[in-house]
């Protein structure tokens, strides 16, 4: 199996509602599984995979996080138009570019206003010793998850300035003296 059900009945209904909105707003539903059902699991929260083509940036399926098995293809004429779309979106969690050209990949990684970038890697989840976090409406705060940031987040810094004007070496009594 490749994937299972979504989490709740409400999630399933929300996802199917968004798929319907995509059709109503003029996107082309290339793979349509709205009637998907599994024998013996008719009451499960399964949503089949969907593919939209010719999605435009004014559609709800483009603006909203669907959080379901729905992929939208938005056609761009140029690289500039494509990077502009990702940069103009309110979310800035992750992104990826697939290319054989190092110059394009490098330009993309430098300019993009998104926190986690994949170059020929579709889900660029940073490993434990780097940090995980998005930009724009994907993150509120200063420090990311795991990596060095997490040690900063969960501690506070105390800075001590210490001076010892005079100590025992300056005039201490070193001779053994009897108590009078």
């Amino acid at each position: 199996m490749d994937f299972g059900p979504v989490v709740t009945r409400e999630a399933k209904e929300r996802i199917l509602g968004l798929i319907n909105s995509g059709v109503e707003q003029g996107a082309e539903l290339v793979v349509d599984n709205r009637n998907f059902s599994l024998q013996g699991y008719e009451n499960g929260f399964f949503v089949g995979p969907h593919l939209f083509d010719k999605v435009t940036t004014d559609m709800d399926i483009y603006k909203t996080e669907i959080f379901g098995p729905v992929l939208s293809v938005v056609r761009a004429k140029t690289y500039e138009e494509a990077i502009g779309m990702a940069m103009d979106h309110e979310y800035g969690n992750g992104t990826a570019i697939f290319t054989r050209d190092g110059d394009t990949a490098r330009d993309f990684a430098h300019r993009i206003n998104i926190g986690m970038v994949g170059i020929n890697v579709p889900i660029p989840v940073p490993l434990a010793y780097h940090t995980f976090g998005g930009w724009k409406k994907s993150m509120f705060g200063d420090l990311n998850q795991h990596g060095p940031d997490s040690f900063k987040f969960y501690t506070r810094t105390k800075t001590v300035t210490a001076r010892w004007p005079s100590g025992i070496k300056e005039g201490g009594e070193f001779n053994f003296k009897a108590m009078d």
């Binding site: 909203t64 570019i97 890697v121 993150m139």
Partner: peptide
Amino acid sequence: AQCFGGAKNHMIIMPDADMDQAADA
């Protein structure tokens, strides 16, 4: 506080990309 929210992750596919790799990904 550190509060992480939603996402809408874009993948750009350039004309020179390996299309099988891109589709699998």
